[in-house]
Simulated assay, not measured.
Amino acid sequence: MKTNSKHINGIDTEALGNAAQAIANDASQGQTKWLVSSHWKGGTRSDAKVSEYHLAGQRIARNFTISIDEPLELCGANQYANPQEYLLAALNACMIVGYTALCSLQGITIDELVIETEGDIDLRGFLGLDPTVKPGYDGLRYTVHLKGSGTTEQFEEIHRKVMATSPNYFNIANAIPLQSQLVIGSLAEKHAA
């Protein structure tokens, strides 16, 4: 994508720089909270509802639905991508934001950016058939295809920075604690009480 005044690769570099400076001056401006509410739709189908996120203590309305299913071979109706595909897509998309922003801030135009990610899961772990088999990935493999006006050295440095700063790269590469709570009963019943 070509440049247009302060817009490079579709990124307003002035606005991005101003946001980074505001967060550097006041860390509270960079505090975010993300929420997703997933609703079972029968079988292996679910819809994830995105209705808000929080930035610098302010609630910002959103209105998106992410539909999820499983392939026919895994007892689904094959209507939508499955959770693993969304996980890999979320990793790729987060890194793409990083490559695009970092290239744009350096005045580098991107001609092509593709990330291919794959991983293997042994379903014996998911199905509880063998307690020695992990239910998830042993690792992921990804390849970044990046072409643009930058030098090899610039792209290598940007690649290292993306791996160091991408939230989803961090979340997948590092164990993060999960806090679980089970509520028995209907959400509608809870709101009616």
Score class of each variant (00 low, 15 high):
Phe64Ala: 15
Phe64Tyr: 15
Ser67Glu: 14
Ile68Arg: 08
Glu70Ile: 06
Leu72Gly: 05
Leu74Ser: 08
Gly76Pro: 00
Ala77Thr: 12
Gln79Ala: 11
Ala81Pro: 05
Asn82Gly: 09
Pro83Ile: 06
Gln84Tyr: 11
Glu85Lys: 01
Tyr86Ile: 05
Tyr86Pro: 10
Leu88Cys: 02
Ala89Gln: 15
Asn92Lys: 12
Ala93Phe: 11
Cys94Arg: 12
Met95Pro: 02
Met95His: 01
Ile96Asp: 13
Val97Pro: 00
Gly98Asn: 07
Tyr99Ile: 06
Tyr99Cys: 10
Thr100Gly: 10
Ala101Gln: 12
Leu102Trp: 04
Leu102Asn: 04
Leu102His: 03
Cys103Lys: 00
Ser104His: 13
Ser104Thr: 09
Leu105His: 07
Gly107Tyr: 04
Ile108Leu: 09
Thr109Asp: 10
Thr109Gln: 11
Thr109Lys: 03
Ile110Lys: 01
Asp111Glu: 08
Asp111Cys: 00
Glu112Pro: 00
Val114Trp: 02
Ile115Phe: 11
Ile115His: 04
Ile115Pro: 02
Glu118Gln: 09
Ile121Arg: 01
Ile121Leu: 05
Ile121Pro: 12
Asp122Leu: 10
Arg124Pro: 08
Arg124His: 11
Leu129Thr: 09
Pro131Leu: 07
Thr132Asp: 08
Val133Thr: 13
Val133Leu: 12
Lys134Arg: 13
Lys134Met: 07
Gly136Tyr: 06
Asp138His: 10
Gly139Tyr: 10
Leu140Phe: 08
Leu140Cys: 03
Arg141Ser: 09
Tyr142Ile: 03
Val144Gln: 07
Lys147Ala: 14
Lys147Cys: 00
Lys147Thr: 05
Gly148Cys: 10
Ser149Thr: 09
Thr152Val: 11
Phe155Thr: 08
Ile158Gly: 01
Ile158Ala: 02
His159Val: 03
Arg160Lys: 14
Lys161Asn: 06
Lys161Asp: 01
Val162Arg: 08
Met163Trp: 01
Met163Ser: 11
Ser166Glu: 00
Pro167Thr: 07
Pro167Ile: 09
Tyr169Leu: 06
Phe170Ser: 10
Asn171Leu: 13
Ile172Tyr: 04
Ile172Met: 15
Ile172His: 02
Ile172Gln: 07
Ala173Cys: 00
Asn174Pro: 07
Ala175Trp: 07
Ile176Glu: 07
Ile176Asp: 09
Pro177Ala: 12
Pro177Phe: 09
Pro177Val: 11
Pro177Lys: 14
Leu178Cys: 10
Gln179Leu: 05
Ser180Phe: 14
Gln181Pro: 02
Leu182Val: 15
Gly185Glu: 03
Ser186Ala: 13
Ser186Gly: 15
